[in-house]
């Protein structure tokens, strides 16, 4: 019986300790010179960027939560009544333009904003984009050889009957990358021709995969010959050793910007602004160049592995000039039509 009581008491004590411990964790986030940042940058990128930030601002604790673009969108909206973060960093502009998000952020013009060309920032000052990513095909060399298929170079090439059942692309209803692809196609070909193209392409599509990066991974693993995805994933998979070629569609690559913004609810705005200023500093920009295929601020040099994977020095020459406002406004109707006419 005594044993029993003792074990109860110790259980109770360990529960209490547990509670105290976790409360302490919760409280430490509220420290004065600490900010919480929500981002969709990939985890290895964050680590490199933050190492730079720590060097430049040793007294600022930057606590980062990383979630994919869609997960983060849902999370920020759900937390809207009591936001838990100070800054949005490196998050898809198409999501940031969502008016429900617009209500949560506050206009801020960071020091040195002139370095960012006007097309890459909001005219009301609510966001500015420093980086971005663009669409690219991952083409598996071994599958091409085994099936005796030519190397595609453009969206138009993907209509060739010999690729039937060998092309995978993201489902635009579940993936932002998928949406930027069809948005860019409609923007560059026009409403009527764009939809006709998507219908023709549908005949060759093996699967609309419900993720932006998985089509490239599927092609890398040899599951399919061609996976429409984004350039960075192709570069990383080439670097990992997969027998794939990155192909940037000749018509121009659809792209998405990754933008930064200040939360209106931030309780530590000075620190948050300091961080936002830092995101366009030389130091940060140089680090972006090591990781991102699109950097909106001049400076830095492209790393060797990007060049080796086939990324041109002048990125602007292969990028389609996206109309982000159009993309955000038409997302609902475009997806609705896509689901009605093309989703299987």
């Amino acid at each position: 019986m005594t044993d029993n009581t003792r074990s109860h008491r110790s259980l109770y004590r360990s529960l209490l300790t547990g509670l105290a411990f976790s409360t302490a964790i919760g409280l430490s986030a509220a420290h004065a010179d600490a900010i919480t940042v929500y981002t969709s940058y990939e985890e290895d990128e964050i680590a490199a960027f933050l190492a730079r930030a720590k060097q430049d601002m040793p007294d600022l604790d930057v606590n980062v939560l990383r979630l994919s673009t869609g997960d983060l969108h849902a999370r920020i909206l759900a937390e809207a009544s009591n936001p838990q973060h100070d800054v949005i960093w490196g998050w898809a502009v198409t999501s940031l333009i969502d008016p429900r998000i617009g209500e949560l952020v506050e206009a801020y013009t960071p020091a040195g904003i002139d370095r960012v060309a006007e097309q890459f920032r909001d005219k009301d000052g609510k966001w500015f984009a420093t980086t971005g990513y663009m669409a690219a095909f991952c083409v598996n060399n071994e599958v091409l050889a085994a099936k005796n298929l030519p190397m595609p170079t453009s969206w138009a090439d993907l209509l060739k009957p010999e690729y039937k059942g060998e092309v995978v692309m993201p489902n635009p209803a579940s993936s932002g990358t998928g949406y930027l692809m069809i948005a860019s196609i409609i923007q560059m070909m026009g409403e009527e021709k764009g939809w006709q193209y998507l219908k023709d392409l549908d005949a060759n599509i093996a699967q609309y995969i419900k993720s932006g990066s998985r089509p490239c991974n599927a092609a890398s693993e040899g599951e399919f010959a061609i996976g429409a995805s984004f350039a960075l994933r192709a570069i990383k998979n080439v670097d990992e050793g997969y027998p794939i070629t990155m192909v940037i569609p000749a018509e121009g690559a659809g792209n998405e910007l990754e933008a930064n913004a200040l939360m209106a609810s931030s309780r530590n705005k000075d620190a948050a602004k300091r961080f936002l200023d830092w995101t366009i500093s030389d130091s940060a920009v140089n680090e972006y160049y090591n990781w991102k295929e699109i950097v909106t601020v001049k400076g830095g040099t492209m790393p060797e592995k990007f060049r080796k994977a086939g990324l041109p020095e002048d990125i602007a020459s292969v990028m389609w000039n996206m109309d982000f406002a159009w993309s955000a406004e038409n997302r609902g109707p475009v997806l609705e039509r896509w689901q009605r006419e093309l989703e299987r």
Partner: peptide, 22 residues
């Protein structure tokens, strides 16, 4: 999502709506 290809079910539609389209 991983293995279903184009076969859509209710749960993946929840994902499409909540995560894909907020």
């Amino acid at each position: 999502m991983v293995i279903g290809g184009d076969y859509t079910v209710l749960a993946s539609e929840v994902y499409n709506q909540v995560i894909g389209q907020a």
